[in-house]
Nucleic acid binder design. Structure first.
Length: 466
DNA sequence: GTGCGGTGTGTGTCTGGCTG
DNA sequence: CAGCCAGACACACACCGCAC
C-alpha cells in the first residue's frame, strides 16, 4: 500500500512538473510566474494538465491531479510506458536466457554426437566369443579378489582395470557398459546354473558334465528361470572364476537375498527369521553362514510409494532390516552371551552393544555396498559369537539334566501355558526339537518363558500365512 | 559451527530396440 | 527368440554454497 502511494505520489510529481512546464510556456511573456499566478488564483490557458495549489496546500492539488490524469488517460499512458520499459528489459533477459539454453542444449547435443562418434571409433562391437569371455572372467575375478567390487558390481576402478587389462590381452576396447552388461549376463547364467543344482527334476551326467532332463522339463524350467535352457546341451563355462565373482552374492532368490536387487522380501519378519534361521535347527546345527532354502520364494514387494520401485542401494530399508536383524540376534544371543561373558573376558569393541552402536548416529559415508559388506562382516562375527556361546551352552546343558521333553513341558505349564492354550500348543510343536527346548531353558523367569511361547506362536502362524 | 538445499556422481534395475 | 546393447529411471551418497 505504501509503495502504491509512493508511486502515485511520483506520478503526481511528474505530472506537476509537466503541467508546470506547460504553464510556464504559456506564461512565458507575462509576470508573475506560474506559481505566483497559481497562488493568486488566476487560471491561465496552457497545454497539459493544470492544477491549482491553494495556500501552499499540496495534498489536495495532488489528488486533483491524479483524478485529472486518470480521466484524461495520461496516467495509463505513463504506466504503459513504464511497463513497456520493464517488459523490454525482461524480454531481453528472457531472450538471453533462451539463447543460453539453446546454446547449451546444442552444445550438449553436439557433445553427445561427438562422444558417440569417438566411442564408435574407439570401441569395438562386443564380441563375446568363448576366448574373450574366458579372459573377461579371469579379469573380473582378479578385480573381485582385489576388492574392487562394491555391492554386486565392480566399482569404477574395477571396471577401469578390466578395460585396461582386457585391451592388453585381447587388443579390444570395450566400454564399461559393455563389461557391465556382460557381468549381468554372467551373473544370471551363474545363478541359473546353481539353480539347476537344486532342482529335483533333472539329473547329472558326470561324463558330459551336464544336467539332463526331458525337453518338457527344460521348457518348464525356462519359464521359471529365464535363460536356464541354454544349459540343456552345454555346461557352465569358467565356473571357477564365476564362483569368485558371484558366489558370495548369488541371487537365486530362495536362499539368499541381495539388498541391491531391488526386490524386497514382502514379509520382512519372516525374512529375518529365515536369515537367522532359527526355525531350521538342522541348518543351524550345520553352522552354515547362509540360510538354507526357505519355504517362500522371494517376492516383489508391494509398492505403495507413488509407484516408485524400491531401490535400496545401501538404503534405509537395508539399514532397518539390519537393525532388526541385530535386534533379533541380540534377543537370541543375549541370554547365552551373558553366560559366556561370565567366563571369558570379551574383546573390547566386539560386544553386541558396540555392534549395535552402528545403527545409531550418523550414517556412514560409504557406498551402500560397502556399508552392507561391513555390516554383514560384523553380523557374521556376531553369529560366530552366537554359535560359539550356543555351543558352550549346549555343552553345559548336556552336562546338566532337565532338557527332556517331559522336563521342559513341566516348565511350560509352570509358566502359565495351560493345556489348550496357544502357548501350550506351540510348545508341543516346537519342543520336539532339542535346540528349541534348550533355547527355552535359557529364559530365566516364567514371565519370559510365557512371552517367548506367545511370540513363537505368533511368529510361526505368521510364517505359515506368508 | 551447523543445518539445509542443490548438484554431481556412482550404482543398480528395468525396458525396449536391434540383430543374427 | 535369445542375446546384446543403450538409455531411462531411481536412489544413495558426497560435496559445496549459503543462511543462520
Amino acid at each position: 500500500m505504501q509503495a502504491v502511494a509512493r508511486a502515485a505520489r511520483g506520478l503526481a510529481a511528474a505530472a506537476v512538473a509537466r503541467a508546470a512546464r506547460g504553464l510556464a510556456a504559456a506564461a512565458a511573456a507575462a509576470r508573475p510566474s506560474v506559481m505566483e499566478a497559481g497562488h493568486s488564483g488566476q487560471v491561465q490557458q496552457a497545454r497539459g494538465i493544470v492544477v491549482q495549489v491553494r495556500d501552499g496546500n499540496l495534498e489536495p492539488a495532488l489528488s486533483i491531479m491524479e483524478r485529472k490524469m486518470r480521466s484524461s488517460g495520461t496516467e495509463r499512458l505513463i504506466r504503459a510506458h513504464t511497463l513497456l520499459d520493464i517488459k523490454d528489459s525482461e524480454n531481453r533477459l528472457l531472450a538471453l536466457k533462451e539463447l543460453m539454453q539453446r546454446v547449451r542444449s546444442q552444445e550438449l547435443m553436439l557433445r553427445k554426437i561427438v562422444i558417440k562418434q569417438i566411442r564408435t571409433m574407439e570401441e569395438d562391437n562386443a564380441d563375446w566369443c568363448d576366448e574373450n569371455v574366458k579372459i573377461a572372467c579371469e579379469i573380473f575375478a582378479e578385480e573381485v579378489r582385489a576388492k574392487n567390487r562394491s555391492g554386486s558390481h565392480l566399482n569404477k576402478l574395477g571396471y577401469n582395470n578390466v578395460m585396461v587389462k582386457f585391451k592388453e590381452r585381447t587388443g579390444k576396447t570395450y566400454s564399461e557398459l559393455q563389461f557391465k552388461n556382460k557381468w549381468d549376463k554372467l551373473k544370471k547364467d551363474y545363478s541359473n546354473w546353481k539353480q539347476l543344482g537344486k532342482e529335483t527334476g533333472c539329473g547329472w551326467d558326470p561324463n558330459k558334465k551336464l544336467y539332463v532332463a526331458p525337453d518338457w522339463w527344460w521348457e518348464k524350467a525356462n519359464i521359471q528361470f529365464k535363460g536356464i535352457s541354454k544349459f540343456k546341451d552345454k555346461s557352465l563355462q569358467n565356473a571357477e572364476e564365476l564362483s569368485v565373482m558371484f558366489e558370495d552374492l548369488r541371487n537365486t532368490g530362495d536362499d539368499h537375498w541381495v539388498p541391491t536387487s531391488g526386490e524386497l522380501p514382502q514379509d520382512t519378519e519372516a525374512q529375518i527369521h529365515d536369515a537367522i534361521n532359527i526355525e531350521d535347527e538342522n541348518a543351524s546345527d550345520c553352522g552354515e553362514d547362509t540360510p538354507s532354502s526357505s519355504t517362500s520364494k522371494r517376492r516383489r514387494v508391494v509398492v505403495t510409494d507413488k509407484g516408485k520401485k524400491p531401490k535400496t542401494t545401501g538404503g534405509q530399508w537395508m539399514q532397518d532390516q539390519m537393525s532388526k536383524l541385530f535386534e533379533l540376534n541380540k534377543q537370541t544371543t543375549t541370554s547365552c552371551e551373558s553366560m559366556v561373558l561370565a567366563r571369558t573376558q570379551e574383546t573390547p569393541g566386539s560386544s553386541i552393544k558396540d555392534v549395535m552402536q552402528l545403527d545409531k548416529g550418523k550414517k556412514p559415508k560409504t557406498t551402500g555396498g560397502q556399508w552392507m559388506q561391513d555390516q554383514m562382516s560384523k553380523l557374521v562375527e556376531l553369529n560366530k559369537q552366537t554359535t560359539s556361546c550356543e555351543s558352550m551352552f549346549l555343552a553345559r546343558t548336556q552336562e546338566t539334566p532337565g532338557s527332556s521333553i517331559k522336563d521342559v513341558m513341566q516348565l511350560v505349564k509352570a509358566c502359565g501355558a495351560i493345556a489348550g492354550s496357544k502357548e501350550h500348543f506351540i510348545a508341543t510343536q516346537v519342543f520336539t526339537k532339542k535346540n528349541e527346548r534348550e533355547m527355552f531353558l535359557t529364559l530365566d523367569t516364567p514371565e519370559e518363558r510365557f512371552q517367548w511361547l506367545s511370540m513363537k506362536y505368533e511368529w510361526m502362524t505368521m510364517n505359515k500365512k506368508g
